[in-house]
């Protein structure tokens, strides 16, 4: 009986498996379990894991922390809008915020050093997409995400917003400059 008709045997569940099905199920199950255990394995042995450290916050509280960092560590300004470029000390807490339609402030890191990068949104949802290194995370209002990152390539990285956030979405860029260490 074909698949659009009721099974021919009333007790169809007693029909033994064909070898082709049994063999394939075995292979596919092993592969499935391998893929599953790969994720915890990478948490232990891999170097690229997104931290689950996050805090609830408010736009006001987060803005205050960001501005305090900007006031302390700004090294220069860029663009017609005089955007501050902040060079925080290695190992410190760094605050980046997304808002319509800007990443604030611009950041300067030192290659090979580790930073605790906090990110939150002041208004709608945004997407943090660091290019060309290609690191992508979701940024939500009311939540402060913390990732501990170690830039291991120098040069200019651009933060592109990759969550749709209204009509200016495609103009929302930011920068992380990475300088060679030991200067």
């Amino acid at each position: 009986m074909s698949a659009i008709q009721p099974p021919a045997e009333l007790v169809w569940w007693k029909q033994p498996l064909d070898k082709v099905e049994g063999t394939w199920i075995g292979i596919a199950l092993v592969w499935s379990l391998f893929m599953f255990f790969m994720m915890p394995f990478w948490h232990i042995y891999g170097k690229q894991n997104l931290s689950s450290e996050a805090y609830k916050t408010t736009p006001q509280a987060y803005m205050a922390k960001t501005q305090a960092m900007v006031d302390q560590y700004t090294v220069r300004t860029e663009t017609a809008a005089q955007l501050p470029v902040v060079r925080p000390p290695p190992g410190s807490d760094v605050y980046l915020l997304g808002r319509l339609w800007q990443w604030y402030p611009l950041l300067e890191f030192e290659k090979g050093q580790t930073y605790r990068l906090h990110i939150s949104s002041m208004d709608w949802q945004h997407g943090f997409s660091l290019q060309p290194v290609n690191i992508n995370t979701q940024i939500l209002p009311g939540y402060e995400m913390v990732m501990t990152i170690t830039p291991d390539t120098s040069g200019e990285q651009t933060i592109i917003c990759n969550e749709f956030c209204g009509i200016g979405h495609h103009t929302m860029l930011g920068k992380i400059y990475v300088t060679e260490g030991g200067q």
């Binding site: 170097k47 690229q48 894991n49 290194v133 290609n134 990732m147």
Partner: peptide, 8 residues
């Protein structure tokens, strides 16, 4: 993925 900046 292994070529991306280390992060945790």
């Amino acid at each position: 993925l292994a070529s991306v900046w280390p992060m945790s």
